[in-house]
Amino acid sequence: MSTRSAAPQILKLPPVLDLNAASRLHEQVLALRGKDIAVDASDVVRVGAQCIQILLSAARSWQADSLAFAVGQTSDAFENTLQLLGISDESLLPKEIVK
């Protein structure tokens, strides 16, 4: 990891991540394939299960590629939704709240 010098790409999530946002989110994530990603979820006020599916799928795919996929800033709504959905995958939660 220390060999990587480039700063990760920031993926800034929009406030609303509903059904309508899923395809666009998918395209944006795919466009960053092969690069480290830092997700900024601080603006998120509403996120549906489908966008969480995409983020989790991305996190796993990035992990398989040995690339960084980390969520930096989050909003309460984002974290609460993850908890409500029973998602405890650490890649989607900021480090400080993961044990």
Binding site: A7, Q9, I10, L11, K12, L32, D43, D76
Partner: peptide, 24 residues
Amino acid sequence: EAETIPAQAAVAEVSNVIPIAAPA
């Protein structure tokens, strides 16, 4: 939520921010 989230100015400063999912 909009009011409770603190403005994250730092994010905006990063040059390679990719604005994804323009408002629906």
